[in-house]
Design a protein around this nucleic acid. Structure first.
Lengths: 348, 348
DNA sequence: ACGCGTCACTGACACGTGTCACCTATCTGA
DNA sequence: TCAGATAGGTGACACGTGTCAGTGACGCGT
């Protein structure tokens, strides 16, 4: 405890045993200028004039020392960061999300933001918000998995977060909300099935946790369409395992369904295979339709019909984030951003 | 229209009253104590004794103000962060990776680290390293997509990064390397095919960029197995589209292959379907095997044989990261980690 | 010689936190 | 009574950066 580390002692001792991380002060010393000059040169600030020979000396010194600025010190000084926080409970699998995330990250990077995926497993909404707030992000973009309560928004706002954006099934108080009309997905699926003469429609409800906020609204949408046409909707709980699908298929005769909306392509494929193995003819006895328009859906026979969902483009969302951070978000109010449409193949 | 955007319904659209972010000094003032005391209480430092009434006053004040510590200031003061950087060029789709990433993030969080996915699209290795270094992470875990050159390692080390860990097809100089034995995947696949009497084996090589560092070694492994048994290996370029698969299937007769290793399950499924549509009997004429053991592979008929890959567990890697940061990791350097075994179903 | 403007740069402060050394009462034992 | 121990706390510094207000040198017109 009383052992002291050898002091760098400002030039008196030339060598320190541990190689310290070079700072802008080191660069300044080597280049024979002040630290302010170093800062001006490396950030090439336009308001201050520094002669070209000096600029070059500074840059050379920085290169030689391998100087890299300290992001934490920067944000501390600046009072705000360029972090965009992306809370995730479980990282969602699925190519739809992956592709979207890729685009978003790329676009935000282009705007000089850093995207941080931050897990908050098993935390209450406001505890999670506190954890996020520690990073003092410029914006928080919640993609529907994580609930954002008004209290959580208040915590974030109070910690200096400029923009809170939610993408989910419903608008969250106090945030810029991109409302994905999940009921519409179920609705167009059901409308299609009804239009092709089906009357008793099953709707798969995944048992996996975390999907409830999508499956519920899709079920509701299907119900709405069925009601309007005098058809019937039956919810079908299903886990993403072969056993569960086989068990459901075994009950098929007693259910008396002539169509099923499989929540998404993956569940639909799983169920369709089980149905075929149980002797159910698709689409003769029962029509099947999924959602998400995966390539793999075309590999089964019959090819899987699906609902194609146009998610907002990553670049578009990135622009919204930037506007919200700058306080220049357009006040156009509601704005149509995508459509869900049925792609008919062979399974319906 | 199934998506809409909404403004904050707070009445304070865009323009929030400039309420200063509370600091520990504010808490101290409100509680009537010094800032040092606040720090001791909130981090409940064991070495210093603070009376229970005072502790409670401080906690109450912090609660009332909604105080949240400033991570940047903390890491600046501490000289190091608890960030674990996970560079990604493209976020890889695929459930294998997603599941792994989930586990890793969860386990590291448990050890009080924050995982940051940081994209470095189109940057040279050392430029990317400089960008990572700005965040002064405690560790950098590169998952094989991004090349880590010795120069990049030097930059990271110099910026104070405690541990550089690479997970990939080969060890990287100066890092803790987890070597995934990719050739082994191709080898076991080919050995299985040869053992069941096949002699001319096609190996799918995806045309998608970024997969080359996996597909190349797998091809080599297959070649090695074939050579040992006097069999033949033919590389088959394939893009992840139906058209590409159909085109490849059309050339099947002239290729004269009696087996194919599909790189992974997704490519294998795509190709198998195209082969069947072209009138090729699977596994009669040609055996097909994939890799990754996806559930969807069981949905096709015949069920897809596959190579099951045991990736390192997220928790295990997290422990290694922690050890490396603390300097208590065994300096073995390289360590083989990928166990591959064939799961025979019906397609081979 | 003097005022004035421009050029090229520097000194010093603030951002929010953790921690070490120090300080003042009060209590203890002889 | 007095030295010493202990409880409970505080003042001050350092971390690395960006930026504002100066500051000396120099050229120029009168």
């Amino acid at each position: 405890m009383s052992q002291s580390i050898e002091q760098p002692a400002d030039g008196t001792t030339g060598r320190t045993p541990v190689r310290a991380v070079p700072t802008s002060a080191d660069v300044a010393r080597l280049a024979g200028v002040s630290r302010a000059t170093v800062s001006y040169v490396l950030n090439n600030t336009s308001a201050v004039r520094i002669s070209e020979p000096t600029r070059e000396r500074v840059r050379e010194a920085a290169r030689e020392l391998g100087y890299v600025p300290h992001a934490a010190a920067r944000t501390l000084r600046a009072g705000h960061s360029r972090l965009v926080l992306l809370p995730t409970a479980h990282v969602p699998v699925g190519p739809l999300y992956s592709g979207f995330f890729n685009d978003l990250q790329w676009a935000l990077r282009r705007l000089d933001y850093t995207v941080v995926q931050y897990g908050s497993v098993g935390l209450a909404a406001e505890d999670a918000a506190r954890a996020w707030a520690e990073l003092r992000p410029a914006a928080v973009v919640s993609m529907g998995e994580v609930e954002v309560t008004p209290g959580a928004v208040e915590i974030l706002r109070r910690s200096g977060v400029k923009a809170v954006i939610t993408v989910g099934t419903r608008a969250a108080e106090g945030t810029h909300s991109l409302v994905l009309d999940q009921p519409r997905v179920g609705e167009v699926a059901a409308e299609h099935l009804i239009a092709t003469g089906r009357r008793r429609i099953g709707v798969v409800v995944p048992e996996e946790p975390g999907l409830g906020m999508f499956s519920g609204p899709r079920l509701d949408g299907a119900r709405r369409a069925a009601e309007a046409a005098g058809a019937t909707v039956v919810p079908l709980p299903l886990a993403y395992t072969e056993e569960s699908a086989v068990a459901l298929a075994a009950r098929w005769p007693e259910l008396g369904l002539d169509a099923v909306f499989g929540y998404n392509d993956e569940y639909a494929m799983l169920l369709m295979r089980a149905l075929q193995d149980a002797g159910v003819d698709v689409p003769g006895d029962t029509a099947v339709i999924g959602a998400d328009d995966l390539l793999l859906g075309r590999l089964l026979r019959p090819r899987l019909s699906t609902v194609h969902i146009d998610l907002i483009e990553g670049g578009e969302l990135a622009a919204l984030v930037d506007d919200a951070v700058n306080g220049t978000a357009d006040a156009t109010g509601r704005r149509p951003l995508l459509d869900s449409r049925v792609i008919v193949r062979e399974s319906s």
